[in-house]
Amino acid sequence: MSTNGMESWAVDLAEVGAVYPFPGTEFILFLAGLAFWIIWHVMQLRGEKTEVGEEMDADQSGDKAREAIGRY
């Protein structure tokens, strides 16, 4: 038993196709990959919301903002 069905390389390569592990799971992998990508955006947007919130709370006087603008 092997995860890609290949027990040996003593074969004619002209008759071999995909050799990645767990062939047949491609569509499930695709769905999992899609979920990973979407979850990434959700997490990133949440993180950015927190970051922006923290920046809104900082430097209420505006002194440091003027300093940052001055530095260009």
Binding site: M1, T3, N4, M6, S8, P21
Partner: peptide, 16 residues
């Protein structure tokens, strides 16, 4: 785990 059981080599007699 991912490649468990696959041949490590084209040569005969090698551990998988």
């Amino acid at each position: 785990f991912m490649l468990w059981g696959q041949p490590s080599s084209p040569y005969a007699g090698y551990a998988t």
